[in-house]
């Protein structure tokens, strides 16, 4: 586990920013890590003490409005995407659904390779048959969810490990903050004048 530990330290030490020149250092660290052939645990060995960002919950209702205006409700496992600090201090919680991959008819390989912007795959035995869909969030009262957990009506299935947490952040960033198309960027610049 030495190399993994070093890698984690490397990532931690890189906050909050890293000079562009260190890209090569990052790659070198990864290559060293790769040589060790270690298994990466994306999930924490148990669940974290408190409800945290990236936690996977048992089934809750999700709602989406279809193109004809109808409201569709379905149940799915859920991932908490708010920061742990937010969960502690704010009233509402944003959950995104976790669906079974077995029902997915297309692009399963692309999903498993995390190549789809809006979908996330966690390569862990507990979740290997599931994917997370960032495109269909729902909002709940934090109090409600915590109470339901306390009552046992909602179970916390898994928490992310440090590496899993980094994977979540990277996927959220790619999904929400990837560069815009040049036309839109130009239009924004025009608005400055």
């Amino acid at each position: 586990m030495i190399m993994l530990k070093e890698l984690i330290n490397f990532v931690d030490a890189s906050f909050p920013s890293i000079p562009y020149g260190e890209k090569e250092e990052a790659k070198r660290a990864i290559k060293q890590f790769e040589k060790t052939g270690e298994t990466v645990n994306y999930l924490y060995r148990d669940i974290l003490p408190e409800l945290s960002q990236g936690d996977i919950l048992s089934e809750v209702p999700f709602l989406f409005y279809d193109s004809d205006g109808t409201a569709n409700r379905l149940k799915a496992k859920a991932m908490v995407i708010n920061t742990s600090c937010h969960i502690e201090n704010k009233s509402f919680l944003t959950l995104v659904p976790v669906f079974s991959l077995t029902q997915m008819e297309t692009c399963v390989d692309a999903v498993k390779s995390n190549k789809i912007y809006e979908l996330m795959y966690i390569p862990d035995i507990k979740l290997r048959e599931y994917y997370i869909d960032f495109s269909m969030p729902v909002t709940y009262s934090v109090k409600l969810i915590k109470e339901q957990i306390d009552k046992g009506r909602i179970q916390r299935i898994a928490s992310l490990s440090q590496i899993g947490y980094y994977l979540l952040l990277i996927k959220l960033n790619i999904y929400l903050m990837r560069r815009e198309d040049p036309d839109t960027m130009e239009q924004r610049k025009e608005a400055l004048c």
Binding site: P16, K27, A29, Y166, L169, I170
Partner: peptide, 13 residues
């Protein structure tokens, strides 16, 4: 995945 996470978090956080 770890690599991109490292670089990504480091650059954007």
């Amino acid at each position: 995945t770890v690599a991109i996470a490292a670089i990504y978090i480091a650059t954007l956080s």
